[in-house]
Design a protein around this nucleic acid. Structure first.
Lengths: 137, 137
DNA sequence: TCTAGGGTCTGTAGTTGATACAGGCTCAAG
DNA sequence: CTTGAGCCTGTATCAACTACAGACCCTAGA
């Protein structure tokens, strides 16, 4: 077994290790997404591998569009492994439904926009199909 | 010609006529999206058909995903018709590009989510493909 | 005439998910 | 010993609203 585990890193190191913004780490701590880490004698935050892993989890979840409240729910399931796969599935499926609805909305918007832009003459005239569509719809 | 034009309506009526939230009207006034309306002797805001039309324009634009800054730009073109169709086209095309990028992002997210959820057993076990994917990716 | 209820007025605070900054410590290198 | 980087804290800012408190005002009914 390799023993590359990091004994103690500081906030800047955690930021670099995860790609997270420095200030965001403090924000996640404030709202309870990340735990209050131990401190050095001079008050510096001290993180380890478990923190790196947890923050990466949070960032991947956010990247997939889970809200912080949803991430909180997922973390609860990570922290308390006595809870079930079925609970996770429900959160993920709800979120998938949201994502699909957003895609449908954006596709409707895309249709309206591209139809309207296509009717643009694009010249110097003050008449404009986009403005007309917005004014008269 | 019909003469159904509304001489003077109040804020609540404007909200009902447009479907806009009551407080949002005041907010749009504060940030200059809607003009400061004339007031009654007792200080009540007094709106007319032009306000209804303008607010509907704003709401349709917002609904199509234009930011308030973009809406401000579009309104500038409505207010000053000496400006050109070409200017509108640029704003709309930029926005269309944004929308298309967002759709692509969401489709990537949808793929990851649905693949992961499909691997869920959905049972009472504490092992979970979603959590594992988020932890180990 | 009094009263009850709605509507409206103002300013201000809260929401989500961060990001930025000021002013002060601490730490390691040269 | 100094210099610069990094860290600490609290607070302000952003978009785009939404909500609330406390004070007016207006109309209808008894």
């Amino acid at each position: 077994m390799s023993n590359t585990s990091v004994r103690s890193i500081r906030r800047g190191d955690l930021a670099r290790a995860t790609g997270c913004n420095l200030e965001t780490i403090r924000y996640y701590e404030k709202i309870g997404i990340m735990p209050d880490p131990p401190r050095s004698t001079k008050g510096y935050r001290s993180y380890d591998d478990a923190h790196v892993k947890r923050l990466k989890f949070v960032m991947r979840s956010r990247d997939l569009g889970f809200s912080l409240e949803e991430v909180r729910g997922l973390l609860g399931l990570v922290d308390d492994r006595s809870r079930t796969c079925a609970e996770v599935q429900i959160i993920a499926e709800d979120h998938l439904t949201d994502v699909q609805a957003k895609i449908a909305d954006l596709q409707r918007i895309e249709r309206v926009l591209s139809d309207t832009v296509a009717r643009c003459t694009g010249d110097a005239a003050p008449e404009c199909a986009v403005i007309d569509a917005l004014l008269d719809a």
